[in-house]
Design a protein around this nucleic acid. Structure first.
Lengths: 228, 228
DNA sequence: GTCACTTTATGATAAATATCATAGCCGGGC
DNA sequence: GCCCGGCTATGATATTTATCATAAAGTGAC
């Protein structure tokens, strides 16, 4: 086993690279580039040429689009083990969205040509990859539909529960985004996000200290998210 | 060449089955089932077990979700050459959405186990499939984001232009859905969809005769869709 | 530390959207 | 043909949400 290669112990390996044959893992490791990013860094911008297939080893990033007037729309927030590359990576030549870093991150990049070459050779790998990418795309679609059908209170409750339950797995957490970014995520104005948070605080559903949030009444928040 | 097999001339073949080896096409053809559907038929329901990979040969279908209170939410409308199966087909065991028929359709069904077996063997096919599925998922995500960021006038204009430009490729077309279904698609109330259509009619942007729509002023509709 | 700028916060008001009520219309079932 | 139920349509009203205005608090550059 090649001592230079760190992929043997990568947490991602068990996720889907287990299907790699030894020599493929070797190729993978030799070619991959791991890049550390700081909060606020741009990973790539909409329109950039797609050169790498990339996934998130650690940290938190946001996927977003900017419209001509400069208003951003957040597509989703991705955590460790999520891919930064979505399905478009195999059908597009240029990025259809931008990615920036919310919490210091390490992103592993694999040359897209190399990735396709391995995919052509190894059916198990490709099928695993398709399952994983499919599952993520499915999640994004369903999340978008869930957000769309909610009103302001339900939207804010939904997104706070996402942070609490899916991302931080804790009732107390530090918001990785500003109120404005929450608004860009769920499609409201910044003022109404702030107002809704204030209302939840006054009703003792939340404790708020700047970006630190504690969900005091989970059941009530779930009720608001589902029927609010 | 097996005369019983019609797949040689299938329009879909050039789309991505061109990567099939001859024997694979044979297996495919022997196993496939082509099912004709009438307007109003249910193809499958959310929660049904996934047995087939299916694509639309002709006609028009809607993909939708129903919430506990019975309100539907339309995910997208798919035409010929679109897949009825989305990416989840490889990562889920049960359907995460329902499909019903808007215009008489023929759907080709392939056993999912068989499909996976071919995918494992033929990398070119799998990569082509991933590109196609990826592109469709990408489109659904982008469409959902486009709808989310618009207000009522922009939403209605957007969806009418979709019917006119993407689906029927004509300024005159017969709406395949009721006003209520349009509302379920773009997230408004039925009354406001009707009201907005009436306003467009009064402003001479549309001619409306029941479900027959003619877009009289395409430029104005595009302006409303983009900046509306 | 100070200044400029962004973020958070709240209130007042305007605009957009939903809800409720009503009615004509159309199509399918019998 | 006739009736019933859903679809289309429109108005009045209530509610929700956005916009505008203002200000305090936090943040980074120098």
């Amino acid at each position: 086993m090649d001592p230079r290669c760190g992929c043997d112990h990568c947490e991602l390996k068990t996720a889907f690279f287990e299907s790699f044959r030894k020599e493929e893992l070797g190729i993978f490791c030799d070619r991959k580039v791991e890049i550390p990013y700081k909060r606020g860094d741009i990973v790539f911008l909409e329109g950039d040429e797609i050169k790498y297939f990339s996934y998130l080893k650690s940290g938190l990033v946001k996927l977003y689009r900017s419209d001509p007037e400069g208003k951003d729309q957040i597509i989703t927030i991705a955590g460790p083990f999520d891919f930064v590359s979505l399905l478009g990576v195999f059908s597009e030549t240029h990025q259809t969205y931008s990615v920036s870093v919310l919490e210091d991150a390490v992103i592993c990049c694999i040359d897209i040509v190399q990735m396709k070459a391995i995919a052509l050779e190894n059916g198990v790998f490709t099928l695993n990859l398709m399952e994983k990418l499919g599952s993520i795309s499915n999640q994004i679609i369903l999340e978008s539909l869930e957000i769309r059908k909610r009103h302001t209170h339900g939207k804010v409750a939904y997104i706070l529960l996402k942070f609490s339950q899916s991302i931080y797995k804790n009732q107390v957490f530090e918001l990785p985004v500003s109120r404005r970014e929450i608004a860009e995520y769920i499609g409201m104005t910044t003022e109404n996000v702030i107002r809704t948070l204030s209302e939840f605080r006054k009703e003792k559903l939340l404790r708020i200290n700047g970006r630190e949030i504690e969900i005091l009444d989970v059941a009530a928040m779930e009720r608001i998210s589902n029927y609010g």
